[in-house]
Amino acid sequence: MQPPPPPLIRVRDLAAAFDGRTIFEHVSFDVARGEVCVILGASGCGKSTLLKHMFGLLEPTAGEVLIQGQSLTHATPSQRSELMRHFGVMYQSGALFGSMTLLENVRLPLEELSTLPDDAIHAIARSKLKLVALEGYEGYMPAEISGGMKKRAAIARAMALDPEILFLDEPSAGLDPITSAELDDTILELARATGVTFVIVSHELASIYKIADHVVMLDRRTRTLCAEGSPADLRDHSTDPWIQSFFRREALHQTTEVPQ
């Protein structure tokens, strides 16, 4: 039997602060290659901030992030940009370039960071838009499409170079249940067929049960991780009232009594 493969991403004792205000600290977990890892937590508890630390946009105040054993935190700028080439990122607000059409948005990383011939760029960019069910909207400007479509176009842009790790910040927020389920299928299919690793911030319970191999849960009160494991595991075995309320979609005051 082979030894288990080393984790693709290791987060070690990470702490983050804005202007001296600690957002979270002592956060440690691993993400294995090919896994779909979902970050959960109350709104404002620092999920987006954690994600930004994982792909190296923000400097932690303590701890570090390792990608395939190499420290992202202590890397030189050139090493870091080399590492970041393996990442695709979708920001919470989409961050599409407003002066370009959707197709141009997806083409941009391909044009700038690869030497593919033009017809290849065209075909690949269109295929990415098809993956997120935006076929036929290639010529639209970001301002002309709905919020959910912007999210999907941003995912297509993040996937343009077929990165090994995709970081998605609330991809299914603002999507109807059907499109959201289709997006889940696409994520699962990409994870299975190409071994892409996903780190996703999400609140959609149905989607979490379907796609997540591994969830990490941030707690706003203790400012650190409060739980980690598979979603079914957390739902069935956790005794924390907050986690139970989360998985049952209840208001917290209804479950202040901890059932044993």
Binding site: R126, S127, K130, E135, G136, E138, T186, E189, A193, T194
Partner: peptide, 19 residues
């Protein structure tokens, strides 16, 4: 199997082939 499935996902659908 996986490659065939991927091809199905990325292939342009017939109606959108002609731009």
């Amino acid at each position: 199997e996986q490659t065939l499935r991927l091809m199905e996902l990325v292939a342009p659908s017939p109606r959108s082939r002609t731009e």
